[in-house]
Design a protein around this nucleic acid. Structure first.
Lengths: 345, 345
DNA sequence: GTGAAAGCGCTAACAT
DNA sequence: ATGTTAGCGCTTTCAC
């Protein structure tokens, strides 16, 4: 196989223990010996065997990220933040991305084994009691991203506030009949955004009309796709109810929704104002007003949190719930009053 | 730590060897014993320790993907293809993403250790002799993605042809003064796209004018960012040379370039036609004509190739170079003749 | 069909 | 300061 510490020990004429000590900088070694070992290691091109090391140390220099479908910009950005932190450590990143929501529990099971990873990041996982039990039984630290639970560290945003922000903005713009296109009803973030939507309406004494609320019900995708938005928008418009604005619980769905509107000759924002959620890269280019999630920063926080927990030896850090406050990004898709017609780049 | 085969052996009242046999389905075990072991394993909630297994087997069920900056849509899409294949195996995906091009060799070094991964996917790595030697010395299979070399399996596209396609399209549209914004000159794909650009011009008896060729020279990002495109476009326009079209070697740079043009009151496509490269998600939304790379499919191919090599025991498969043919996707940014003004969704 | 035992590469006491 | 040695959890001969 590869070069081992035995080879180095031979070459440098010392014991493997000494080699190990030099390589780990643990206890003190004579300067001269150290140099000799290092030199041999360099010449032989030694690279440590992580499996052997993990086995001996009973700890693994790997963190797992469990991501439901690696498709989206959201996960990519968060993962980028995670890498940003991890690159400063000696931890490697293992990606578990289940295309099917069904087998996510198997993945969690595998990822959480202490022999597999030293810590895990769980992305957008709906937390039910069974999962909580499973996670609780695990010996390795877990950080929830984009979902939350009392028993675990979590990084998320205030979705309800985000929904509220979006709708309040629309109301300020003079809109009164505001529709809602939301992701799968089981999605906790989507549901919370809906709560914000309803609260904002009630705060302004506008009745909530269930007929202009529509859910993307695709089982596989969680409803967060362009196609889902397209379909939902068409269904909504088919109902023939008058609308002057629409809040969509994700930008990617908003893209599809806008497309559907365009296909029917509905002008945005003149005929229909639109607010999305996330602020993905496309959004700035097509002038979509949206609620921004600080994805990169969320990734960094999550990784940092996990690191402190992994490195904590004696006193275990207290559990924290970090909630970012989303921000309204105003663009052309809600410039209702102004006679804007060219909203592209 | 976790449940081990010793626990199962105790519980099922057999030896650990038998447990191992059952779990691996290697040699034959009495049906009854097998059931007993399986049952114990289930009850105890056994999950194998991958480090121990790797160490004993001298092989690792992990494949590494070495990606320069996980930022881009390109890598994400390809990785999605990779995952699509990997999810059908028992291999885990380890991501090495170096934010700095400098330490990419360290990452390769680590990733290629047979104790770390059973195979590696190298993304967009400029292959120099030193790297070839390093890869050649490695015992584990390597597949190059978005770069190529005789000694290794590779998946890429015909970049030269792509550049040719782009420029030919522009010429057919009546453009004659076609500028070029390319990524970092060291980027092999960018260089090849430039070759295609030049060839297409020569094929049509149009002289190549170096003054309207500009390179994004950012050391860190490889030049493939929106910001780089923005800067390059401005620099190019500052030269004051008349242009009726521009070919940009990536969509992401094209976005920046279009933005710069817009800031100067240059209308696209009326004043300037634009062709990008990649066909990232945004492109369809802003009507950018581009050259499409089948990213998802490239990822699948790469993963498949790696799998066959990893699984090949006796006869080693021959080295193959898979080259996809890119495709022109025509959109509004090159509708020069037509009086289009609303190119957004 | 099953058990005993060696060993994968490394770390971490425990000696010296 | 350095060497010896016992595992870490698992696979894999080699016996029986």
């Amino acid at each position: 196989m590869g070069v081992t510490i035995y080879d180095i020990a031979n070459s440098a004429d010392v014991s493997i223990a000494t080699v190990s000590r030099v390589l780990n900088g643990s206890s003190s070694v004579a300067v001269k010996t150290k140099a000799k070992v290092l030199e041999s290691a360099r010449i032989l091109g030694y690279v440590p065997n992580p499996s052997a090391r993990s086995l001996a140390q009973k700890k693994v220099n790997v963190v797992s990220a469990i991501v439901p479908v690696m498709t989206t910009y959201f996960f990519m950005e968060v993962l980028r933040g995670v890498q940003d932190i991890l690159s400063g450590s000696d931890l490697d990143l293992l990606i578990f991305s289940s295309d099917r929501l069904a087998n996510i529990d198997d993945q969690i099971q595998r990822a959480l084994h202490p022999g597999r990873s030293g810590g895990a990041l769980l992305f957008s996982v709906p937390v039910n009691q069974q999962r909580i039990d499973m996670l609780g039984r695990s010996d390795i630290p877990v950080v929830l991203v984009d979902s939350e639970h009392q028993n675990f560290d979590s990084i998320s945003i205030n979705n309800e506030h985000g929904g509220h922000l979006a709708v309040t903005h629309l109301l300020e713009r003079g809109c009164r009949k505001i529709g809602l296109i939301m992701g799968h009803e089981k999605s906790v973030p989507a549901s919370k955004r809906m709560v914000g939507y309803k609260t904002a309406l009630r705060d302004n004494n506008i009745p909530v009309d269930d007929r202009i609320i529509i859910e993307c019900a695709d089982e596989r995708t969680d409803g967060f796709t362009e196609r889902d938005g397209y379909v939902a928008m068409n269904e909504l418009l088919d109902r023939g109810i008058d609308l002057d604005a629409i809040f969509v619980t994700s930008d990617i769905q908003a893209l599809g929704a806008m497309h559907a509107a365009k296909d029917r000759g509905i002008a945005i924002p003149q005929d229909l104002a639109v607010v999305g959620f996330d602020d993905i890269q496309v959004s700035s280019h097509i002038g979509l007003t949206t609620i921004r999630q600080p994805m990169f920063e969320m990734g960094r926080q999550a990784a940092n949190r996990l690191l402190t927990r992994i490195e904590a030896n004696e006193m275990v850090p207290l559990t924290t719930q970090t909630v970012f406050v989303p921000k309204l990004i105003e663009r052309e898709s809600t410039q209702v009053r102004v006679g804007v017609e060219n909203i592209h780049v």
